[in-house]
Design a binder for these strands. Structure first.
Lengths: 345, 345
DNA sequence: TTGTAGGCGTTATCAG
DNA sequence: CTGATAACGCCTACAA
């Protein structure tokens, strides 16, 4: 009996469903039914077909399937950049789930540009993806809802209700509250915040969480201690430099995300300020690298892998006409070495 | 005149080539010819068709195209993990080129496992991709050559000659030599090396480059100063800890890649050793984060974005029956703050 | 230069 | 339960 499918099939070109049908003495429709479980077939025929499939090393052609059945068993995944340290992990989660379900992913990058994002989605639709996962998209809620009318959609980074649409989001407010509270517990009173661009809803929520923690502890919210920057190393570095240049006093810094925290660390280092001796530093996200920074970074863990899993599972559910409202893990503070007691004053 | 394609097409389902043909009073084949440039058509018909396409907002269906023509305008990209800080950037380069050429990418992860890698490739083939880009694959050269007989293939991370196959690789030896030479120039004589797993050809080449630089400078190669570990933060950390535990003396460390350097920095930090005051540290790759480490890391720049571009362009060339042997930028030393003069002894 | 007819590999809709 | 017979949307001989 012939062995490796890829070897046996190569001799006469790809094995087709029709060939399987012929080899097992049934009609193509029957083979198709067995493949898809579309109808009950007699055990004998089923056995014959199964054997033929194995012997010929038949693999269904997804392209033909897509044309005939309208389902391509592929889903589009829109990210901002493929090489994001945060979303990269989520992509892995998505891939795992889709793969197990027999789906393939088409990853595309929107580059934080609504227009590009739309082009991507058009491409994806032209390729007849069965559904869409949009990781923190830039487009408006209304358009998203419109999309969902046509195609099952899962979005992250916003809360939104619509038919054919599932939205998944983290609890940024709570995470930021935890981080700030941790600093307060360590005795810090002059706590700065490096906020991400206020355009981002999550940046707003994190700022609100920071503020809430402060106020709950009876500490004043001081706007001058909040600097805004891009959600990246550069953003964190320059924001910190600005605070330093203003001669502001602070013994702790809560960065809007880990990348900003990395940048902040560089800025502090250049000023001769030690972490955590002189300044305590907290990040947000818990990137892989956070644990390997010097010193290892205290941060708020966001389960981005689980986000990927949940997004993909939600989409699978949507495609199966279910609606299982999956939930994400709570944010969790991970205390490492970048935070310490406030210096005496 | 109807506007947005996605809007106008929605009313009566997707616009097909046949509808365009009818609307412009020509046969479907003529439309197809215009679309593909397969034959010369009269200016009038061309104009009529172009107008109909624009008015109807027609977008060819890649799925049907794939079935009929055998070309899917999609290519498979095999990586080890989607969220690799090094290859992630290359993926961006690939995406850029492919996108501009009207191709879509199917990204899959092999997880450093030959078996998984093969399954991925089978999936990709079943989806009828037009070509394959394999980023540092784990499978053997022979199998790769076999694959290339069937399908255009571009591989990175090895040198290999075969028809239908283009191999792209960096000059690891030269990069390592540069890094080590830099340390020697700074007066260091006890230079350790944190090598990646010797299974990896690039790790071997880097080790050889390190050794060559040493010997060219008349310094002895001391095997005890070479520790091996995985190409990741953990690997670098534990390797460094082992060297430290053995009481070895060294004033500089050349890490096999940036991630190992990050890990090394943590290990040194824990021991109270300062970078670069006590120990100079050089990495390899020049990840985005290298510039944002504290202190910013001196490292060997590898143009991974360009690698992605070159890989994709090579594949496009292969698909066009050309063979343009693209070349990669030379490795380049980027001196930042993690290296300094050797302490006096 | 252009149209017609057949086919790519499956699925879906019918009868039986 | 099963088998013909049409699609699916496009490409490509072949013929005109």
């Amino acid at each position: 009996m012939p062995r490796a499918p890829s070897a046996s099939s190569r001799s006469t070109g790809p094995v087709t469903l029709g060939m399987v049908a012929q080899a097992s003495g049934v009609s193509p429709s029957t083979v198709s039914r067995i493949l898809n479980g579309t109808a009950i077939v007699s055990p004998e025929k089923r056995a014959a077909v199964d054997r033929a499939i194995a012997e010929l090393g038949f693999v269904p052609n997804p392209v033909a399937r897509g044309l005939a059945g309208g389902r391509t068993l592929s889903v589009g995944v829109v990210t901002q950049t493929l090489d994001s340290p945060f979303y990269g992990v989520a992509l892995r989660g998505i891939e795992d789930v889709l793969d197990a379900a027999g789906y393939s992913a088409l990853f595309v990058s929107g580059h934080w540009d609504v227009a590009v994002e739309k082009r991507c989605i058009d491409t994806l639709r032209s390729r007849r993806v069965d559904g869409l996962i949009i990781l923190n998209g830039a487009m408006g809620d209304a358009e998203l809802k419109g999309l969902a009318k046509d195609l099952p959609v899962v979005v992250t980074g916003r809360t939104l209700k619509a038919t054919g649409l599932i939205a998944l989001d983290f609890k940024h407010f709570e995470g930021a509250r935890l981080a700030t509270q941790h600093l307060i517990d360590l005795g810090h009173r002059d706590i700065g915040h490096l906020s991400g661009d206020i355009e981002h809803p999550d940046a707003r929520e994190r700022l609100a969480g920071y503020r809430a923690a402060l106020e709950a502890a009876g500490l004043p919210f001081r706007p001058e201690l909040v600097e805004t920057g891009l959600y990246c190393e550069e953003g964190g570095r320059t924001a910190t430099e600005r605070m330093l240049a203003q001669g502001l006093r602070f013994s702790a810094l809560f960065a809007g995300n880990d990348q900003m925290a990395f940048g902040a660390a560089v800025a502090l280092h250049k000023r001769g300020l030690r972490v955590p001796t002189d300044v305590s530093l907290v990040g947000f996200d818990d990137l892989t690298l956070a644990a390997h920074m010097t010193p290892p970074l205290t941060t708020v863990h966001q389960a981005s892998f689980e986000l990927g899993l949940a997004a993909a599972r939600s989409l699978m559910a949507l495609l199966a006409d279910e609606k299982p409202k999956l939930t994400l893990p709570e944010p969790r503070l991970v205390v490492r070495d970048s935070t310490g007691p406030a210096p005496k004053r």
